[in-house]
Design a protein around this nucleic acid. Structure first.
Length: 439
RNA sequence: CGGAGCGUGGCGCAGUCUGGUAGCGCAUCAGUCUGGGGGACUGAGGGUCGCCGGUUCGAAUCCGGCCGCUCCGACCA
């Protein structure tokens, strides 16, 4: 992509409403634009990141044996009356009425819809387990949206639902999601720590929130510092193998969010020098809820011995749009964003320092043409701007690599490669640079 | 929802107290010089001062109502 034609409305100054780095930088880097309170448009750069994160989530869901569906955003109120949640769900639910005076709602979540799909199609234990997921926009009319897309009213979410015959099966599904989440966040370069969370109506220990530690996070968290040093499981996982050892190692220490925190237990179980009290960003939540919806909605299956039982369910959510902010909170400096390669909007930024110089132009065009031809995601700053402006823009949008073509270097037959995260620079020939990225 | 603020060219702000020609920086456009960290100069365009009503000879400024947005708290991916 040539920057001269790319829609990238960057800001030099900090917008006054943005309080936290991710919000500030997303606005300054032209990734998002507010439409109304808690509702944003995603501009090209932001949209690319959103898509990349979405794709990682999708791949890991698929790898864990989930199947993608897409449920309606607008749901009938009757379904919610069946589960008993229509009256119970508060003002966060956006309620609508269609032209026939039917009560509708913009889905804040999809347990009812997915349970309805299940009950209409699955009747036998032989069709279990099943695990369906979707990635789509939700709307929750939050009292106070804030921090840009971190707490929007409209947000992009992956949610999935497991269906099993019995508790043992449900636990297996839960564990799969637990591991899938560890992998998903690790691939984005995030340290997400599974923390005990409010367990809801069923009780037990089958509810975890995955939390990125960050001072700007919304919730207070308490955990054992050793979690920070643990390998985030970047290598492959065989979901047919027992997952208990992985679960065990990730639950062996104390880690809890504010509403589940037990100070006495924290002090008893965690040595003083290992007690970490900080704040965190919740990016995922996994949850076992048994027959809470299947029972009232009549989602039953027939067992091997002919009994009819409500299906055991769990639900699992990842805040996809929130992750964009979380990745920025985890990776930025004074100059701007620092993307991990896995989610970067482009892998490489090419800077032609001197537009008026024929040699610079020729070398830059050649590099751009070659890499683009080999499907390298490259953003080429071919604007007629000063060198400083180009450096500033490139640092702001945070692409992992910058390839700098200037008259000084070209005279010596080299271009400069800069790594955004470390600011390490090396000079190399054009050929070497091409090989480095097209190889 | 309780508390606190803000709304003036695209962005950041001044002007409002004390009514009287709408202003600054950045951005934009044209041109020239530049070109290794948001460069310089010259010129230009762009604003019903959130909306409605009131007071007044005259309202960005005073009064009333409404709308929008932000921040702090209780809820949430």
């Amino acid at each position: 992509m040539r920057l001269s034609v790319y829609f990238l409305p960057t800001l030099k100054e900090n917008p006054s409403e943005a309080q936290i780095p991710s919000h500030r930088l997303m606005l300054r880097a032209g990734m998002i634009q507010q439409s109304s309170a808690g509702i944003y448009s995603w501009l090209p750069l932001g949209h690319r990141v959103l898509r990349r994160i979405e794709q990682i989530v999708r791949q890991e869901m698929d790898a864990a044996g989930c199947q993608e569906v897409l449920m309606p955003a607008i749901q009938p109120a009757d379904l919610w009356r069946e589960s008993g949640r229509y009256d119970q769900y508060g003002e966060e639910m956006l309620r609508l009425r269609d032209r026939h005076e039917r009560d509708m709602l913009f889905g804040p979540t999809h347990e009812e819809v997915v349970t309805d799909i299940f009950r209409r199609n699955i009747k036998s234990y032989r069709d279990l387990p099943k695990n369906l997921y979707q990635i789509q926009w939700k709307f929750r009319d939050e009292i106070r949206p804030r921090f840009g897309i971190m707490r929007g009213r409209e947000f992009y979410m992956k949610d999935n639902f497991s269906f099993d015959l019995d508790f043992e099966g449900a636990k297996r599904s839960y564990n799969k999601m637990f591991v899938a989440y560890l992998r998903t966040f690790a691939r984005m370069g995030l340290k997400a720590i599974p923390m005990e969370a409010k367990s809801g109506p069923i009780g037990g220990d089958m509810s975890h929130e995955f939390v990125i530690l960050a001072e700007t996070g919304e919730s207070a968290v308490y955990c054992h510092a050793d979690y920070l040093d643990m390998d985030m499981l970047a290598e492959g996982v065989d979901y047919t193998q027992a997952l208990d050892p992985i679960i065990a190692s990730w639950t062996r220490h104390y880690a809890a969010t504010d509403d589940k925190h037990e100070p006495e237990r924290f002090e008893r179980e965690v040595p003083e020098d290992k007690r970490l009290t900080t704040r965190g960003i919740e990016v995922g939540h996994i949850f076992y809820f048994g027959t809470k919806y299947s029972k009232p909605m009549g989602a039953t299956v027939t067992t091997e011995d002919g009994r009819e039982v409500p299906v055991e369910m769990g639900s699992y959510g990842i805040g996809v749009s929130r992750l964009v902010g979380a990745v920025i909170e985890a990776g930025h400096d004074e100059a701007g964003i620092i993307w991990p390669e896995s989610v970067a909007p482009f892998r490489l930024g090419l800077i032609n320092l001197k537009i008026g110089d024929p040699a610079c132009r020729k070398a830059s065009d050649e590099i751009y043409g070659t890499l683009k031809g080999r499907d390298v995601e490259i953003l080429y700053d071919d604007r007629d701007e000063s060198a400083g402006a180009k450096f500033a823009t490139m640092d702001l949008i945070g692409l992992p690599w910058q390839l700098i073509v200037g008259p000084r270097g070209l005279k010596a037959g080299v271009v400069e490669l800069k790594e955004r995260a470390t600011d390490e620079r090396q000079e190399l020939s054009v050929e070497a640079a091409l090989a480095r990225f097209a190889g």
